[in-house]
Design a protein around this nucleic acid. Structure first.
Lengths: 217, 217
DNA sequence: GTCTATATCCAGATAGAC
DNA sequence: GTCTATCTGGATATAGAC
């Protein structure tokens, strides 16, 4: 008769551990987070964590895998390669902006990981970059955006702007001039970025051709 | 007669310690760097570091102060507030780009500091932001750049693009399609960014007015 | 599966000789 | 000013009872 206190539930325990670890790793990085802290936050003992995940590194990898899972399911439909540039850029910028807003731990973990010396990109990251680069190449080919910019750099401008916004979000919001602007700071930023990017990428008769070779393969 | 081995030279010792510490803090952050490592790299004993700087934190603060000193002397002449936008943006983007290229530890220390929870900005940082924001406000007022963007956001787009370039520099360069592009990747990025920003900020008759109140004070 | 107790290591900091 | 030797604390990880 299983009426004893139901503490033994491996799946639930693992979930508790991963949730606690994700928050702590995002906040303090890998080295700065102790197994003890994770255990306290998750409400289990330290050794139990190592039992389930073998080592602190094991927990870390499992956290990253969980985030990638969420990421993949949020960005399931790939963009149409022949969509008009205006529409594509709106989708791209808007969904990237929203993803980081809704998943703040992802940006933090990526930044920590980068500084802490993780060499390799996250699984799927390269393909993701590649997909957007491809789009810019083809939009340039049909004259839908200006042809004189390196496609990868276009991607960087947009990513960099969104990264810095969420990375220093507190600072930017605190810095806003009054309550009203503070409340709409996110909308305003997204709107400004779209306006800036759309005009910055618009073609003009005098543009030189991009002199790269297009994609490698 | 002072002909004994001249090891007792406080200033030189401090310099050795600060140089070693700056590299290590930039590479591994504050928490990730041990006094022992600094001592080994500087060629002095651990306790001597604490003798000169009182604590590990003391070393860290001294390193930041040294960087700010370099930064201030590199950026001494403030930009002319009435310079034409094209010229101003070229100067601003170009000098910021070059400063991070020549002082890679600054960006790294700032990123570590931010993740490790340093709340307050570096000394002089706010004034620096303010100065550039001011410029954009006045350029908007005289119609030299489009008037519908929040000035602070313009600043973010440019900073963000430059940050991400140097932060992931290795990645971007490795990713370049061939040797020739790799070698000129920095020039190309700077050029693309200038082209993108200049067109992105160009005024157009249909623009709405920026509805903020301008500066607070 | 989960705990308590503990081994082992390495950190920052101090004491005191030179 | 600089060193060696040492203290103290907190980290990961393990042993072994339940």
């Amino acid at each position: 008769m299983p009426r004893e206190k139901q503490t033994r539930n491996a799946e639930k325990t693992k979930r508790l551990i991963l949730n606690a670890a994700e928050i702590l790793f995002a906040e303090k990085g890998f080295a700065g987070t102790s197994v003890r802290e994770i255990s306290e936050r998750a409400g289990v003992s330290g050794p139990l964590i190592l039992f389930h995940f073998r080592s602190k590194e094991g927990v870390y990898e499992a956290v990253k895998a969980a985030i990638i899972g969420r990421y993949a399911s949020a960005n399931s439909p790939a963009p149409r390669p022949n969509a008009p540039a205006g529409e594509f850029i709106r989708d791209f910028v808007g969904s990237m902006f929203a993803f980081y807003r809704d998943n703040p731990t992802m940006l933090l973990l990526a930044k920590w990981g980068h500084l802490e010396g993780e060499a390799d990109p996250w699984p799927g990251e390269d393909e993701w970059h590649h997909m957007y680069e491809e789009y810019f190449v083809s939009a340039q080919a049909r004259g839908d955006i200006r042809g004189d910019l390196t496609p990868m750099n276009i991607f960087s401008f947009i990513c960099g702007s969104i990264h810095i916004w969420w990375e220093y979000h507190e600072h930017f919001v605190r810095h806003a001039e009054n309550e009203g602007l503070r409340a709409r700071a996110d909308d305003r930023f997204l709107n400004d970025l779209l306006g800036f990017a759309l005009r910055g990428l618009s073609p003009s008769p005098g543009d030189l051709e991009y002199s790269g070779t297009g994609r490698k393969c």
